[in-house]
Design a protein around this nucleic acid. Sequence first.
DNA 1: TCAAAAGTGTTTGGTTTACACCCATGA
DNA 2: TCATGGGTGTAAACCAAACACTTTTGA
Lengths: 245, 245
Amino acid sequence: MTNFKAYLNHISLDCVIFGFHENQLKVLLLQMKYTKKWALPGGFVKKEESFEEAAERVLKERTGMDNIFLQQFHVFSDPKRSEMNPAVKDLEKSGSGEGLDWFSQRFISTGFYALVDFHKVDPAPDFFSDKCEWKALEEIDNLMMDHRQILDKALETLRLHLTYQPIGYNLLPKKFTMPELQKLYETILGKSLDRRNFQRKILSYKILNKLDERKKGGAYKAPYLYEFNLENYNKALKEGFSGSW
Amino acid sequence: MTNFKAYLNHISLDCVIFGFHENQLKVLLLQMKYTKKWALPGGFVKKEESFEEAAERVLKERTGMDNIFLQQFHVFSDPKRSEMNPAVKDLEKSGSGEGLDWFSQRFISTGFYALVDFHKVDPAPDFFSDKCEWKALEEIDNLMMDHRQILDKALETLRLHLTYQPIGYNLLPKKFTMPELQKLYETILGKSLDRRNFQRKILSYKILNKLDERKKGGAYKAPYLYEFNLENYNKALKEGFSGSW
DNA sequence: TCAAAAGTGTTTGGTTTACACCCATGA
DNA sequence: TCATGGGTGTAAACCAAACACTTTTGA
């Protein structure tokens, strides 16, 4: 990451990495070394790389994972967005003048959102950060540059996609319970849903297999476990479905 | 357009300009001077400009119009997409070596779609084209580079937006008939709809004002004219609505 | 006067919503 | 034994799909 010659000028990307844990939607964030501001994991695009490849590279570096569900959602091109780039300040403070020119330029950033299984992620900070952590949506605050705006747009997109695509496969572990799936939907949509109606509707899509197992360990009555029926799930993804929540 | 120093390297945008005429969805295309291939109107981004501003500039130059409904929909970043840029060939043939370096570089293009009132457009070719014409979707063929892919993605996006936004205001003249509006929806969706159910549904959104006038001149029974109720239309745009067609 | 397009209304079936009861579990 | 969460069912309200009849117009 010291040889910026390999990368395209002016071009960056930022990833909003969503995970689901303890009934909360969480986002993987980095804390910048000097300004202590929080940032979305981002990166640059090599001269012979597509944006999607670059995003996969960033995802791999920050999470250790391959084959992540990834979707571009918006380009952020306001010329003013680069003016407050704290990497510039970080570099000045650190004394390492290297890269100052690079980070002082205008960046046009393409936003990607990613959906991952929380438990499979091994968070790793990058060169400019000393922390890489999951943050629940409500805890998020004081993001650098326009990253709050990028996050909000990602959420909005996720919400839209939820109404015509069965999202969930990428965010949940292989086996999960109906209440867990419902909480996921409720978190993304920001509203609560009727337990019984939710179950009926999601089952009507035929994208789930009900297992004989139940989830043990929790308090109260043990809920059944489900898994996605990949065949039908992929069919539904392709065809789209006009469900509304 | 000869001083490329004012523009950001590697970065371009392409506009899919939709219009509606004679019951057909049409797209404004340019024909390249030498290769005779058809192309989407595109342009570059100035160093102090947002993409949206650049797109408005391109729209203004090609259509003569301001205040066009504009929406970015995807970034096309495959490194191979630039390999077949016919502008390079055009410049070679034309003998004017100027700009060859510029057009030989890799371009990452952001796609915008625009919705305009067909009758208000005054099509103007650009420096590299000698024709600027409306083409119905079925006539379109032999587009340069990946422009067919860009067009298809624009259509797909338009279709998606149609199901949660009342599109139409930007594509139709101020006064229009119900059959015209229906034809627009049918063209975008690529399927036919029941006349009576369509009318009931669209009226239920309360975004139209029925006028006392009827459209004269046509054969057969004269249909009523409608106009959009801007207040309710904008409300509906903001809130989104979960209609399905 | 008739074919084609437009205005309007009704029936039917499915989906969504709202709500109630019973079961299992750990405290 | 009871509070809490989970499994399952049903009636009512609403919406969408299918369909028919009448009116207007130019040829």
